[in-house]
Each structure stands twice: as C-alpha cells, then as structure tokens.
Amino acid sequence: MQIYLPVAELSVNWLLLLGLGGGVGLLSGLFGVGGGFLMTPLLIFIGVPPAIAVGSEAAQIVGASVSGALAHWRRNNVDFRMGFVLLAGGIFGSTIGVQVFALLRNAGQVELIIALAYVVILGATGGLMLAESVRAMRRQRLTGTARRGKLHQHTWLHGLPLKMRFPKSKLYISALLPFAVGAFVGLLAALMGVGGGFIMVPAMIYLLGMPTSVVVGTSLFQIVFVTANVTFLQAWQNQTVDIVLAVLLLVGGVVGAQFGARLGQKLRGEQLRGLLALMVLGVALKLAFDLVATPQDAFSLGGGRAH
C-alpha cells in the first residue's frame, strides 16, 4: 500500500492520501470551498515537508477547480472582465509570493511564516464568519426570515483612480481595487498552498460589491489560473511540486466533493457557514497552539535539503 513520492522523496500509504483527499473533498463539496486550507496543514501533519505540501497542494487545487470553473462558464456565471483584472493581480501577487517563499526557505523561516499566515488569516476569517452566521441565525429566530444588509455602500475605496466599467457585475469601480484583492489572494496562494476562495468570495461580495450570482464562477476562474501559475513557478524555481501526490489527492478529492455537494443540499446555509467557521477556527487554534507550545526539541535540521 506504500507509494514512493518521487519529488517529495518519501514513502507514504496511498490509501491514506486517497482518504485525505476524499475527506477534505467531502468538506469542500459540503461548504463550497476549495479545502486547501485544510489539506496543506494535514499534509504537513502526516510528514510531508511544508514546501512540498504547499507546492503540490497548488497543483491539486488547479485540478479540483477546473471542472467547477467550466460548469460556471457554461452557465454564464463568470464576469470575465472582472476575472481578468483579479487574475492580473493574482499573477503579480503569486509570482512575488513564490520568490518570497524561496527566500524564506533559505533563511529557515518558511515553516514559521506558513504557520503564522494560517493562524492570522484563518483566525480572522473564521471569527468573522462565525459572528456573521450567529447573527444570521439569531435574526432568523427573531423575524422568521434572514434579511440582507445594504447591497452597496460608498466609501473612500470608490474614490480611487483608474475607474473601470464591469457591466456583468453592474459596477463602476477603480480597477486598482480588484487588482489589489487579486494580488493579496495570489500572495497567500503561493505562501499557504490555498486557492484563497474563502477570502476571495467575501472580498468580492463585501469589498467590491459584486452580485452573488457571478461571485463563485469568477472566483473559480481566477483560482484556476493563479494556482496554475503557483504550480508552474514552485515547480520551476523551488522544485517542490510532487505531481504523484497531487493526483492522488485530486482523485480522492473529486469523489469526496460530489458526496459533499449532495450532503450540503440537506443543510441550511447559516448552519453550514457556522460549521465551516468552527472548522476554520479549529485549524487556526491548532496551529497557534503549535507555535506557542514548547517544542519537543529546540533543535531541528533546517531549511531545504543539503545537496
């Protein structure tokens, strides 16, 4: 049952990898998220070097997102104009991210930065999501229906230059805004081995004010290309993409996601969001604990392989 991962240079049980892929796939189908934020820490936990986990997970997300992106394209749910601006930012951010990753790896700090990024980003999004869903559930109990807040608010962000029209999203905003969002998510994709949908989707809704109908499709469109860029650059510059690992996770993940999507239809939206928030917070807490707890041994063999 063991399979030797050629680039990671370690031998793991391939059933375990299929199972991990399936389990995370189930959750990602259930919640409609990519699952990279769960998979990368899990891979590190089972002994895959962090750099390989991040690079290979990017390849897995490419595969996991492509069918969703195609489906949304067919249903005409992609705002390509917005998608390309986000993508330009994403390519910019992820290219910088891969360089930063290589620098950190040589300095022996890449594990710390990955863990810190996870704690901060997951802690913040998890907390916000939990608060939001608790509020929604309470509101529903009070009035019987969930109401939405104001769709569109004008802030200083709308006074930025380089205004651009996005007819599909019915927006007239500065192109700098989606570019910055794309760049930030791209940077995280390179550093954390995530697609970044869990940040991209809220940013599109609350920051850019895009209509929800095109949010998921546009975000998937952007994620496919940004994670493809991360995969290419990580493989090229850091040699940290193990395609055997990625494909095993992908096969498990695609199957799991189908079951998850069916299961998801039986649960209510606020409950789903609440559960997702708890899971995100759980991962953040576990990683935070690992950073604070006294390590078994203060010494470790570090930073890249001694070739």
């Binding site: 490419v62 290419f232 493989a235 990625a246 494909v247 096969v251 695609v254």
Partner: peptide
C-alpha cells in the same frame, strides 16, 4: 523535475487540469 524544472512545471499544470477534468467527468 530537477533537470527540466520549467517543463516539469508546465507538465504538472497540464496533468492537474486533465486529471481534474477527467475525474469529475
């Protein structure tokens, strides 16, 4: 992966795209 890193990167992206599409199809 080590000698032709850039080509390997392209191949990895292609394989991931094909595998993802094929598995869901």
């Amino acid at each position: 992966a080590h000698r032709h890193a850039a080509l390997h990167g392209l191949a990895a992206v292609m394989i991931a795209l094909a595998a993802g599409w094929a598995a869901s199809a």
